[in-house]
Amino acid sequence: MRAAGVDQWLYPTPRGLYCAPAGVYIDPARPVERAIVTHGHSDHARPGNGAVLATAETIEIMKVRLGTEAAGRFEPAAYGATTNLDGVAVRLVPAGHVLGSAQVVLEWNGQRAVVSGDYKRSPDPTCAPFEVVPCDVFVTEATFALPVFRHEHAASEIARLLASMRRNPDRAHLVGAYGLGKCQRVIRLVREAGYDAPIYLHGAHLAITELYAKLGVDLGDCRAVPDDKSADLAGALVIGPPSAIADRWSRRFPDPVTAFASGWMRIKGRVRQSGVELPLVISDHADWPELISTILETSAEDVWVTHGREDALVYELTRRGLKARALALVGFDEEGE
């Protein structure tokens, strides 16, 4: 049992998951001396830590979202490069979730644990693909851990969006999408499908989208939604935060078609709640088959399941003869997208 005893040096605390020999927390919920941040989403990357080890992209994202003073010291690490933290070998490996997202590979005392953060396996042109790292303990998310979640191919969902735009040339299409990752992925996929007109963004999505472009993700002509209410955006594609799509912000557009790009759009009850007309099943998290196959590929003996629907995943892994348990971690958003 190579995995036995990993929980002696890697365990949850009220501040977050803690690697004791390295004195480092991974995605801490409260400020700590030394942190490793898997990616830039706000439930993983928080301000106020002493030192932050992350990919260069994640650090840039944190600076844009949280300010240049968001951490006492930023320590960029390239994918695959090993950093030694008091005898613990630390390596960041692509997680395929959003630009800069990483799994944290920790090796100590001949044991290897992988903290995967949020991840997905389906292709995403805006970030490096997930890499499988064989390990003894695999820490996995469980956002979409129910067998009802099987995401559609993102490209076919984008085709539905473009078809709706062709069918309704007089209506603006308002797509609700998370500002970091999903928004840029939708833009990139729309571009790959041949749409080259300007894409309009809600103010909240501008800065990160510009950063993506600066970091080499070609997103074409993206601009802010004009303040001038009379601006003619009939037929335009507009992307904004999901909360704005059905709220007051949307009133400036004439008779818009509202859409929401999220893995939750698989479930009709969620579609009804969101009130959108065009649900797009596009997710930056692994679906059920991806979760299971990824876990099996890592050949981990022990699987720790964090935020989301832990019950179903722990049950399924146990049924398959693996050791699995729910890990009570504080501070993560179970909704994810």
Binding site: L146, F149, R266, K268, G269, A312, E316
Partner: peptide, 22 residues
Amino acid sequence: DPVLYALSRDYVGDTAETVALL
């Protein structure tokens, strides 16, 4: 599997939809 079905049904809230999805 009956346990996975029950968890899914609870989450989705509609039998026909749950069966269609899984």
